[in-house]
């Protein structure tokens, strides 16, 4: 299980990193999502892997799994999900407004900016 777990994190992180370095917003968003999946699994593993053990006290349990990482993961999932939704909306707005979905800085327009921003 450890091998599967570790390689899942590794593959998702590698894929996420590759996509994050792309130029257009859509692959970058996918990359961010992959990275957050990877970090969620990673956080889950930070409390050591245990199968079939309860996280809270019970009379007939001999071993327990660490409940804290599960709470952390829950928080992390909620936050990363919300953040991804926000960035998708902002990215969509930027794309619809300027008809261009590159993530990088465009060259400064310099002295000839037509009208100031509002």
């Amino acid at each position: 299980m450890e091998l599967l777990f570790a390689s899942a994190i590794g593959v998702m992180t590698a894929g996420g990193l590759y996509l994050v370095l792309r130029q257009r917003t859509f692959p970058v968003f996918l990359g961010i999502s992959l990275l957050t999946y990877a970090v969620n699994v990673f956080l889950f593993g930070s409390g050591r892997l245990t199968t079939g053990a309860p996280p809270i006290l019970s009379d007939d349990a001999s071993t327990y799994t660490d409940p804290l990482p599960q709470a952390l993961v829950l928080t992390a999932i909620v936050i990363s999900f919300g953040m991804t939704a926000v960035v998708v909306m902002i990215g969509l707005g930027a794309f619809l407004g300027s008809d261009d979905d590159h993530v990088d800085d465009q060259p400064e327009t310099g002295a000839e900016t037509p009208e100031g921003r509002t």
């Binding site: 994050v20 917003t25 970058v28 961010i32 953040m83 926000v86 960035v87 902002i90 990215g91 707005g93 930027a94 407004g97 300027s98 993530v103 990088d104 800085d105 465009q106 921003r117």
Partner: peptide, 10 residues
Amino acid sequence: RLRAGVQYVL
């Protein structure tokens, strides 16, 4: 602003 916002958020 939106374009700069995308970079900032990412």
